[in-house]
Simulated scan of single mutants.
Amino acid sequence: MSASVGIVLVSHSPQLAAGLRLLVREIGTDAVPVLIAAGTGDGRIGTSSDLVRAAIQAADRGAGVLVLPDLGSAVLTTRSVLAERQRPDVVIVDAPFVEGAVAAVAAAASGADLRATARSAEEARHVRKL
């Protein structure tokens, strides 16, 4: 099997990101790297460009990396990191945090490429719950 798209969850809250990672790992396989970049370097609520950079590097297995931020400064921090060194194989997606992560991991686990994985995450915005 070829390398899977890596997924990075960027959140203000380490607990939120860890819980979501636990959920999506039940859906995906060990072949889908799901990394988190959450909180500050000293464990407070917030975001850290160093943690985002490290998570992207760790998630990269050769098929690209999808980065999914939760909101606000997580988006700004991610954009800042990606602007430092633009790579076509690392993309940020505008998707709901939980639903987008679930859809992305399911797509990556099925062998989807980076573009299809990103599209799956973004399309999760339109899935109705009720």
Rank of each mutant, 00 (worst) to 15 (best):
A3H: 10
A3Y: 12
S4Q: 11
S4G: 03
G6H: 01
I7M: 00
V8Y: 03
S11P: 08
S13D: 02
Q15S: 07
A17M: 14
A18P: 08
G19Q: 08
L20Y: 05
L22C: 06
V24Y: 07
R25G: 11
E26P: 10
G28K: 03
G28P: 07
D30A: 10
P33G: 06
V34S: 03
A37R: 08
A38Y: 08
T40F: 04
G41R: 03
G46H: 09
A54H: 06
I56M: 03
A59C: 08
A59V: 03
A59K: 03
D60N: 15
R61F: 02
R61M: 09
A63D: 03
A63M: 08
A63T: 06
G64H: 06
L66F: 07
V67Q: 02
V67M: 01
V67D: 00
L71D: 11
G72T: 09
V75H: 04
L76T: 14
R79W: 05
S80P: 05
V81R: 01
A83S: 15
A83D: 14
P88A: 15
I92T: 08
D94V: 07
D94A: 11
A95Y: 01
A95D: 04
P96Q: 14
V98M: 14
E99V: 05
A101E: 04
A101W: 03
A103G: 05
A103V: 01
A107I: 07
A109N: 12
S110A: 15
S110E: 13
G111E: 01
G111Y: 00
D113V: 03
R115N: 04
T117G: 02
A118Q: 04
E123N: 12
E123D: 12
A124L: 10
R128S: 14
